[in-house]
């Protein structure tokens, strides 16, 4: 299982109230900022769900 990002809700890095909180809270490197864009490396996700729980836009959910 891996997470999915709802691009409608996600503010990406620039429009996130915390400028990419998920990238800061994910310690697996599964959600990272690359060239100002939010990138998901699904193979690194270990389903800790911290991103789901803490996303200020509720844009992340289980696949």
């Amino acid at each position: 299982m891996v997470v999915v990002i709802d691009t409608e809700k996600c503010g990406n890095i620039t429009d996130c109230p915390v400028e990419g909180l998920c990238t800061k809270i994910c310690e697996q490197g599964a959600l990272v900022e690359e060239d100002g864009q939010l990138v998901l490396h699904a193979e690194k996700c270990d389903d800790c769900d911290l991103c789901i729980q803490n996303c200020p836009n509720q844009a992340i959910s289980k696949a």
Binding site: L21, K24, I25, N54
Partner: peptide, 11 residues
């Protein structure tokens, strides 16, 4: 509020 991000100093 977002307790964990606050505790980690992210917010």
């Amino acid at each position: 509020g977002p307790v964990l991000p606050i505790a980690r100093g992210l917010v």
